[in-house]
């Protein structure tokens, strides 16, 4: 078990970093740093955050009981030492990478995660815009393997909290680039700006939490290009400041598609679990379709087509 004092330190740190939000806003308003804040957008982020905390807090028993059951049937007894914690941290980051990737590639999971991407602004307050439905999207099952392996729920929880704490500073335009070695190894604001981009080139890229090596290993790394400024948001942006609409809009869109008469079972599954933008009319709305359209516009052909 990790020392409870450590858990408290991380929890307090997570609250303290929130103070960086008004600091960044003030700095941006004085033009000391790059970035943009809009009052309604930032306050909407706070509203979405309160909803997220409420649902996360009241439904956290789902995650806790799932992980506890998995730990009860663990394969190994892994003690809490510095190196086992380091291993847990790296493995937890790998879990985060795949959790995040699935959250972008399948519409059911995207419906939960899209909330975080729904602002067209990108600043530290964007951290607050989090999902309300993460406890019952089904992706919490991805927390099972580490506990089943033998890492205690407290150790995994601490690793997860540190991972989220690290990610706080990524949501900013105030920092341009870090040193090259840092940009290669770790997630940075530059990499994460790409992740929040809706430009075809930047869609579905840079899923990393802490270590950028996962994106490099699994082929999802895209660098930020000075020639193509990031357009933040989603492909089909929202025009509302209502937290309920923001949290649930993609579920409403799924329901609307499911109610469409005459769909086959395959089409219904496509609208539910296919990539975001999937349609019975084709893949033109998906990331692959949007990228193909852009390639054809700028005259780049795939090797196979050459």
């Amino acid at each position: 078990m990790p020392d409870p004092a450590w858990v408290k330190v991380v929890a307090v740190a997570q609250l303290l970093v929130l103070l960086l939000i008004p600091l960044e806003m003030y700095s941006v308003s004085r033009s000391w740093t790059r970035g943009q804040y809009d009052a309604r957008d930032a306050l909407t982020n706070v509203g979405v955050s309160i909803g997220s905390i409420f649902f996360w807090g009241t439904l956290s028993w789902i995650l806790l009981s799932t992980v506890t059951v998995a730990y009860r049937h663990r394969l190994l007894d892994i003690p809490f030492t510095w190196w086992t914690f380091l291993l847990a941290f790296v493995l937890e980051d790998l879990r985060y990478y795949w959790w995040h990737r699935i959250g972008h590639r399948s519409r059911w999971f995207w419906a939960s995660h899209v909330v975080h991407h729904s602002s067209q602004h990108f600043n530290l307050s964007t951290n607050l815009r989090q999902s309300w439905t993460s406890q019952f999207s089904g992706l919490i099952l991805m927390s099972v393997p580490l506990a089943w392996l033998g890492f205690s729920p407290a150790m995994v929880g601490l690793a997860f909290s540190l991972n989220l704490l690290y990610q706080f500073w990524l949501h900013t335009e105030a920092i341009d680039r870090m040193p090259r070695w840092f940009e290669w190894l770790l997630n940075t604001p530059s990499h994460h700006r790409v992740h929040h981009g809706s430009n075809a080139r930047y869609l579905d890229a840079n899923y990393a939490g802490v270590f950028m090596i996962w994106d490099r290993m699994f082929g999802s790394f895209v660098p930020e290009q000075a020639a193509e400024p990031v357009r933040y948001g989603i492909v089909k942006n929202l025009a509302t400041f209502n937290p309920v609409r923001i949290a649930l809009h993609e579920y409403a869109a799924i329901l609307r598609d499911q109610l469409c008469p005459g769909l086959t079972l395959r089409q219904r599954l496509g609208y539910l679990f296919g990539p975001p933008g999937w349609s019975r009319d084709g893949l033109q709305g998906t990331t692959a379709g949007l990228r193909a359209a852009e390639r054809s516009r700028i005259g780049v052909r795939d090797c196979a087509a050459a």
């Binding site: 609250l15 929130l18 103070l19 008004p22 003030y26 009052a39 309160i50 905390i53 409420f54 807090g57």
Partner: peptide, 20 residues
């Protein structure tokens, strides 16, 4: 940290942003 503390922290940040 309980939900109440987290929500209070968010309200504080919201208040600071409003003031700014």
């Amino acid at each position: 940290m309980g939900i109440a503390v987290d929500i209070a922290a968010n309200l504080l940040i919201g208040g600071l942003l409003l003031a700014l």
